[in-house]
């Protein structure tokens, strides 16, 4: 009797373990992202035409419950500190022209609504796509007569975070009909599927073929970029998209291109398109 009792406990434990493993390995979470129990965010959408996946899913679904909760609370989300800092920068005069962003554009929250959701954008003058960081630097040089930000300067990340956050909850959509955007998209697609580095990985290997699985202890997402700049627990700071691109390429043990280089801009155009329809989550919280 005692013996069969023990056996049934063992069977029960095995069942529980099995169920836990299934829950862990079962791809994205079924949770819904609702900010402050008020605002639901689109984190799963139907893909745009020509997309290789059946459903476009935000990286939020691939994080643990604690990380998901942190993003769902707009007070606790440490990324909001950088949104506030970004607003200060927006209103601060810099450079020889004696201007701030607000001098030309006025109130940031009003002017910027929806703008970040449509970046990167074709810039006819430069003859290439501009992301928010490049647009800020062009404005600083041409209109403010201020020095452009160095890549990943604290103020660059905070201002970009503030600008993108003004599209919070709005769907990502890049206009591929402007200028040569389609050609840059093509180049980005090619890079996305090109295996590089000693580990011989392409973006697609992890984020298309194996999303929902684990690489060591890391739960692989689809690699969507709707939450960038994103607050990363590892750095305990905002991480820019090009920083993450370079980190990913470095991790394949390949030489990685400079930030805002043509390669990474093409990749940004293509990868942003892959997340079409997802809501802007900036500042998202990731591991």
């Amino acid at each position: 009797m005692a013996r069969s009792y023990k056996l049934s406990i063992a069977a029960g434990a095995a069942f529980v373990l099995g169920a836990q493993c299934a829950a862990i390995a079962g791809g994205p979470s079924d949770d819904k992202l609702v900010i402050d129990e008020e605002m639901e965010i689109m984190t799963r959408v139907a893909p745009p035409e020509g997309h290789p996946l059946d459903e476009v899913i935000s990286g939020w679904h691939y994080r643990t419950e604690e990380t998901r909760d942190l993003e769902a609370d707009s007070f606790q989300n440490p990324g909001m500190l950088y949104v506030e800092r970004g607003e200060e920068i927006w209103n601060t005069v810099e450079g020889d022209a004696g201007k701030s962003c607000a001098s030309c554009h006025g109130d940031g929250e009003e002017f910027l609504k929806g703008i970040g959701a449509n970046y990167p954008k074709w810039n006819a003058k430069a003859g290439k796509p501009f992301n928010i960081e490049l647009q800020i630097n062009a404005c600083r040089e041409e209109n403010m007569q201020a020095k452009p930000y160095k890549f990943d300067a604290a103020d660059q990340k905070a201002l970009t975070t503030f600008i993108k956050h003004q599209s919070f909850g709005m769907p990502v959509e890049v206009d591929l009909t402007e200028g040569d955007m389609k050609a840059w998209w093509d180049k980005g697609e090619e890079l996305y599927y090109t295996r590089t580095g000693q580990l011989n990985l392409s973006c697609a290997t992890c984020h298309e073929d194996y999303n929902g699985n684990y690489i060591r202890a890391d739960h692989l997402s689809q690699g969507n970029v709707n939450g960038f700049p994103t607050y990363r627990l590892k750095q305990s700071a905002m991480v820019s998209l090009h920083n993450r691109f370079r980190g990913c390429i470095r991790d394949t043990r390949a030489a990685f291109p400079p930030a805002f280089s043509d390669d990474l801009m093409a990749l940004e155009v293509y990868v942003t398109w892959r997340g079409t329809g997802l809501a802007v989550e900036t500042p998202a919280v990731r591991q």
Binding site: R63, T64, E65, E66, T67, L70, L233, K234, S236, Q287
Partner: peptide, 12 residues
């Protein structure tokens, strides 16, 4: 505490 912390730098 969480059973599993996704990153040791920020554990609630």
């Amino acid at each position: 505490t969480p059973e599993i912390a996704e990153n040791g730098n920020t554990v609630p």
